[in-house]
Amino acid sequence: MSALFDESQLRCLAALLDTLIPPDDFPGAWQAGVGDYLLRQLQGDLANLQTSYRDFLRCLDAEARCLHKRDFADLSADARSDLLHRIEKQQVTASWTIEPGEFFAQVIEHCGEGFYSDPGNGGNREGIAWQMVGFEVRG
């Protein structure tokens, strides 16, 4: 799927994005195309963040294994949220090669951009986020 991330990094990314915007009766971030948005941006405006993203995903998995002996993607939704809350507060156990809280704050922004901006940017597939919030484009 992508030259930027290997299979396990992609799994981790999907789980991360779906923890930020989880599925309910509307799709979560991954199904809504936020991954496509991000992969496109990482070859465009955010190309300078390719390495940081890979580092972050690697450290996120390391953190999950440290705490739960499993990959981040294999944790329950609640355990993933708890772990991200700790990262937000810089409470990490594994040795991180990237500043966890600061980079996480950027990931939150990118995820929202992919989900809520126009489908032309690769996310918000078929305008699903706009249907959810009630932003109707009539003209």
Partner: peptide
Amino acid sequence: TPITFWKRDYPPDVPRWGLAAKQFMRNNF
């Protein structure tokens, strides 16, 4: 637009990620 609201006008005391954030957008946009 939804993204402008999310970037510029989002209330500072509401979580910015997780189900609560998604539902805030859904219920209040």
